[in-house]
Design a protein around this nucleic acid. Structure first.
Lengths: 230, 230
DNA sequence: TTTTCTATTTTTGTATACGATATATTTGTA
DNA sequence: TACAAATATATCGTATACAAAAATAGAAAA
């Protein structure tokens, strides 16, 4: 391949590492992220670390208080459900739009992506599955015909990644996921906007509830406050 | 007031200034933003400037290419329409949810905000109008009962700000806007989700088309390519 | 004249250093 | 003993400095 040297910027690497730390609960909610300490641990200087923290503040995972520092904003159950609810609505909208606008060529590629997902699943290659699944969804975002929406949807998808990964190895959710992919594909081929919307909405929503199950299953170690939503 | 020293971080100030530069077309699409040159012009060092550029890359206004620099991503007409279309959908969803969940107390505050908008308009204080209008909309986001959605909506609102401001002094769009605010308020009071959705959707959509008019009116100086969306 | 390789220059990425601000501790007084 | 003020310490924000990568220009060869 023509990958002489990917050269991922340090700040981006740090972004993902800290994101994972927060998602996995290695740092508690409200905890202050010590710049110097983290810089030492990661073996980098404060400069790229600060850039990563600023990036994280953009996605709401940390709060940056001027002259005070960076504080972890660990999403509680309520917030996680809210996040997946938004993702479900956005994906459903994309699917609805795509049903009326998707091209033959895009449909062909989408079918390929769906097959690739199934292949990865049969090979039990979860890492590859995740990539292929992302491709499948991204294609639907793009088929919506609204480039800005597609970007935002992809962004949201990326931000939810750490919270979605936790459920990958959970039950046979994945085989069910495959069936849903096929259903979405059929709805888009038929140009059935309402059906595409409904199936996609359910497809995403379930991810949220599964996550909740998962979290509850691994002992209620860290009790989460659960601020009122309404 | 208790503003001893707001102490806004330099990076955030730079973010807004560059955002404005892009919105006002002071920098052309695809143009490279020279770090050292900008740092000199703004009278700051490269460090906070780089943080601002990273922030801008998060909102899609600039593209950061590793070891190459920051390049302006000037939204074309198509993209602007797409952005307002997404905003309309999001706001409409908020309104729809709010219709079923808004509390008496929130309704009271919303009425106040609407009145404050009208007062600012009558005083021809457009700056104040903008603030009050933002308050009105933010309250509806929060009334949706989904905190994450509210944050995302507020974020989007903020990102669209530079492109919305251009139309402030345009025609008597504002008095029409007031009427729509009242209609939204009525729909929420009545708990009429469908109506709240429809009115809000139109309320935002119009902003997008007005913008387009505005841009077209000020001579087609900078011809915009208009990449195909679908 | 065109092409390719190399050397120079420019610019990005990262580290370090210094000044400013907030927090913690200590001391003095009521 | 409790509370307030002042000092001390730690951390953040910004500037500067250095190293690595890419763009550019020039020279040599086809």
């Amino acid at each position: 391949m023509n990958l002489p040297a990917p050269k991922t910027p340090t700040a981006d690497v740090l972004y993902e590492r800290i994101e994972t730390m927060i998602a996995e609960g290695q740092v508690k909610d409200g905890e202050r992220l010590d710049e110097m300490r983290l810089a030492r641990d990661f073996g980098v200087s404060r400069t790229p670390l600060r850039e990563a923290l600023r990036l994280l503040s953009g996605t709401g995972l940390v709060e940056l208080i001027p002259n005070r520092g960076a504080f972890v904003r660990q999403p509680d159950f309520t917030r996680l459900v809210e996040m997946f609810e938004v993702m479900a609505e956005v994906e459903a909208w994309c699917a609805r739009l795509a049903a009326g606008r998707i091209t033959k060529a895009q449909l062909l590629l989408l079918r390929k992506a769906a097959s690739a997902c199934e292949a990865a699943l049969q090979a039990q290659d979860y890492k590859r599955y995740y990539v292929e699944n992302a491709t499948f969804h991204t294609m639907i975002y793009e088929a919506s015909g609204n480039g800005f929406l597609a970007e935002e949807a992809a962004n949201l998808h990326r931000r939810l990644k750490p919270f979605r990964q936790a459920q990958l190895s959970f039950g046979d959710r994945l085989s069910q996921s495959m069936i849903e992919h096929r259903e979405i594909l059929l709805a888009l081929e038929a140009g059935d906007a309402a059906r595409a919307d409904a199936v996609m909405r359910n497809h995403i929503r379930v991810q949220g509830s599964i996550y909740e199950e998962y979290r509850q299953s691994m002992s209620g170690e860290r009790e989460v406050a659960g601020q009122q939503a309404s």
